[in-house]
Design a protein around this nucleic acid. Structure first.
Lengths: 154, 154
DNA sequence: TTAAATTTGTTCGTCAGCCAAACAAAATAA
DNA sequence: TTATTTTGTTTGGCTGACGAACAAATTTAA
């Protein structure tokens, strides 16, 4: 037998050192986000809906007559980024781009009946997904978490 | 004048409704992550180092003789994903792939002197970046935030 | 010791999500 | 009427990530 397996850091024998990463909020936020994103994608795989697409559907549903620019601004992304998202959902028949009589540049966004039905179904699944990823948090802790997250950045 | 500007949801007159998104931890984690990522990229633009690349450098520095598989596992990503990251850092002369005598399949990862210098400089910048994004949180709140984030998922 | 299984690094195709620059059409302001 | 701004768009590029498939090397089992 050889004195030691691999690199000593090779197996699960020695715990891997994370250095200063452990102290970084950014690292932990990133990790949590990855876990949540992954669970969302798996849960919503049958409906083929990503977190980003879900957000867009919710926003369109909650804001009648909104155009792409307004939606992009509200979600904090660029207009150019929004184009492909909207196009994708439109091609699947979940939303429509409607002409606005008073401004021929703008597209008014609206859910189709199909999109409305899908959103209802997905909303329930999203709640279940949320319950799952926050299962180890109390309601209070979840509220605290959200409050603290909202203090980040500005 | 026309009765109302645009779509009524068009300008900043009417606040945009976020529907159920406001209640979702996933939505807030995503938002915080975007803010932190953005600030990190801007702050580290001179060194052209992304959060992911920084994490890899920190891990290599803190774990001597580690191979790519171990690193990937520790960071929760696939081996195939790690390849491009390592290749990119190696091409910039920040790290090296070293042969391991006892296992000719494996690459031992190590920082070059250049990588070591850069990491030191960037670490200071990262701390400043952290202070900035958590500026509105007390030390206690930051610790609470990390603890709560760690409860997410499993 | 030989055959089977596993591990390591890799390539390739694919996806989510995002930005900035440039542009035409349309609307608004000067 | 002219200049400016807004809307949606295309294009090219970047970060970050998977899974399938594969050859070479190593380890395990028969």
């Amino acid at each position: 037998m050889k004195s030691e397996k691999r690199t000593s850091a090779g197996k699960g024998l020695v715990p891997v050192e994370r250095g200063m990463l452990e102290d970084l909020v950014g690292y932990h936020v990133r990790k949590a986000q990855a876990i949540i994103f992954d669970d969302f994608m798996r849960a919503m795989a049958p409906e083929r809906l990503s977190p980003g697409q879900f957000g867009v559907l919710v926003m369109i549903s909650a804001n009648q007559g909104m155009n792409q620019s307004t939606l992009a601004k509200a979600l904090g992304i660029e207009r150019s980024t929004m184009v492909a998202v909207i196009t994708g959902l439109e091609k699947r028949g979940l939303i429509k781009r409607l002409p606005l009589a008073t401004d021929r540049r703008a597209n008014i966004l609206a859910l189709t009946p199909k999109g409305d039905l899908l959103l209802d179904k997905v909303k329930a699944k999203v709640r279940a997904h949320e319950n799952k990823v926050t299962a180890r948090l109390t309601a209070d802790e979840t509220q605290t978490l959200v409050s603290l997250l909202q203090k980040i950045g500005g």
